[in-house]
Amino acid sequence: MIIVPASADTERGRPGTTQQFADMQAYNDQMLRAGVFVDGQGLHPTSRGARVTWADGEWSVTDGPFAEAKELIAGFTIIEVSSREEAIEWLKKWPASCAPDPGQHLELRQVYAPEDFGEEFTAELREREEQMREEAARAAARG
């Protein structure tokens, strides 16, 4: 997963210019043709979000916006590649027009696969997880 940091513009609700959208679409299309693109989405600014925190046995809700701009996420891209090195090569192809602000970075994180969880994630739990993913895919396809 490629995690894209928020910027002052994305937090103001300005997700990009026409050129940035075109550059990102070309990048995603390149990954799609290479068979590595899985998904990618931009996120609304934190002013439209909330944080829900568990403390002292209760949930509390804090509405956005959130001040920690350097720790906010503006979007993500999920790719499926064979190695960390291949993922890094794709990050190096990120469109320059969409590069993070100076001092910020794209972050690469590996998504867990069921086999990463060990024996605690039993066969029954794995089967139910797969069923839920199939149900979600069918619901998404129905729109």
Rank of each mutant, 00 (worst) to 15 (best):
P45Y: 02
P100D: 12
G40D: 02
L106T: 08
I78M: 14
A50N: 07
T53C: 05
A34C: 11
E107Q: 13
R128E: 15
T10I: 02
P102I: 07
L106S: 06
D23Q: 07
G64C: 03
L106R: 03
F21D: 08
E119P: 09
T10D: 01
Q110H: 07
E68F: 08
L108F: 08
E115G: 11
L72E: 02
R84H: 09
T62D: 15
F76G: 04
D56L: 07
A6S: 12
F117K: 10
E80V: 09
Q131F: 11
R14W: 06
E127G: 05
Q131A: 10
L72R: 05
S47R: 15
A50D: 04
A87H: 02
E107K: 09
L72Q: 06
G103L: 10
I79D: 00
N28H: 11
A8C: 08
D9I: 01
E120R: 10
I79L: 13
D101G: 03
A113N: 13
I3R: 07
A99G: 05
T62G: 08
G35K: 10
V111T: 13
Q41M: 08
A69P: 01
T62S: 15
T77D: 14
F117T: 10
R126S: 08
G64F: 00
E129T: 10
G16P: 00
P15F: 04
A22P: 02
R128T: 13
W94K: 03
P45V: 03
S7F: 07
F21S: 05
A74I: 04
K70M: 14
E80C: 11
A74T: 04
A87I: 02
V111G: 14
F66R: 01
E127A: 15
A87T: 06
I73T: 15
H105G: 09
S60P: 04
D23N: 07
P45E: 04
E130H: 10
G16M: 03
V81L: 09
D116M: 14
K93G: 01
F121Y: 14
F121A: 12
G40N: 01
E135D: 11
E134S: 11
S60T: 15
A8D: 12
D116S: 12
G35D: 09
E120S: 13
D101V: 06
D56K: 09
M31C: 11
E68G: 07
E134D: 14
G64I: 01
H44Y: 06
M132S: 08
N28G: 09
T46C: 01
E124D: 15
S83N: 06
S7E: 06
